[in-house]
């Protein structure tokens, strides 16, 4: 990878983290389009509770600190990290599996 690409990727990560830590603080807490329609038209009650509401990052917050803004920022950064790692892994595998065909390689 050239130095230019590295600079672009680093810049992209910085922007992404700024969105995650700073811009999310200004996020509206009003329902989004589907939630709004479900509430207005009266089918919101057919939603079942999510199976994993006890998870450490559930509902984009954590209980790491007592400050809700900090907790949101921590959850956001964790999500960015998870998505980056899983996304990179999937795309790396997609490229690799195409390269190594037809021989199926197991680690």
């Amino acid at each position: 990878m050239s130095g230019n690409n590295r600079r672009f990727l680093l810049g992209g990560i910085v922007v992404t983290l700024l969105v995650a830590v700073v811009v999310t603080q200004f996020s509206s807490s009003d329902p989004d389009g589907l939630e709004y329609v479900a509430e207005q038209e009266g089918f919101a009650d057919t939603a079942e509770e999510h199976d994993l509401t006890e998870g450490p990052l559930a509902d984009y917050t954590t209980d790491v600190t007592s400050n809700s803004r900090a907790n949101t920022a921590i959850a956001a950064v964790a999500g960015v990290g998870l998505t980056l790692i899983i996304g990179y892994g999937v795309f790396w595998l997609a490229r690799r599996s195409n390269r190594s065909r037809p021989e199926s390689t197991t680690r």
Binding site: F8, L9, T16, L17, V19, S28, G79, T83, G87
Partner: peptide
Amino acid sequence: PLAGLVAAFVFAAQMVNFPVVSGMS
């Protein structure tokens, strides 16, 4: 790595709800 970065950016951007009309984002 660019594709991984795009995924991370979309995740972060999806967290940001912008107001659309009163009571809906």
